[in-house]
Amino acid sequence: MMREILILGRGGQGAQTAGNLLARAFFEIGQYVQTFATYGGARRGTPVTSSIRVAADPIRVRCNIELANAMLCFDESLLDRAFLANADNKTAIVVNSSKAAEYFSGIGDYRIVPVDGRQIAQNHGMGKVINSALLGAFAATMGQPDINVLCDVIFENAPTKKQENVAACREAFALLSESARENHQ
């Protein structure tokens, strides 16, 4: 069973890096992965999509993801009709936003999980660098990859502030794991 994940951000936000880190974490636990980014001439601020496939067997298909199992959206302003066309009511959509889940109920029958990545990043002196926090939230929502493996990958690959990146990832993971448990009850 192949899982397909889409990450959407703006050029410079780290969506492509997040895709590569997530793929690496799945690779580390022995899964086959394929991740690719598409962008129209890589300008800071324009939308960038990173696509990730994860499977137990080698991945052969080379085309866009049409219906994602999960999505990670770096900016709620990008959560538009075109992006949501790749989701259905089972798709877990983690979105970077300070707003509560109810705010998004008007968009449609989607499973939207907001996380205030900006606030978590600031808690750890990370400024606008939100991708480690969002990855932690994503792992909690998806139930995978293993948070320790993910944090190891982030630690190895973060160019600076390695401990801070890991701490932001763990805080978001804990926050979302708690709300996932509450929702379950």
Binding site: N20, Y32, V33, Q34, T35, F36, A37, T38, I59, R62
Partner: peptide, 8 residues
Amino acid sequence: FYVSHAVE
């Protein structure tokens, strides 16, 4: 992209 930027 499908090959050039596909990480696997």
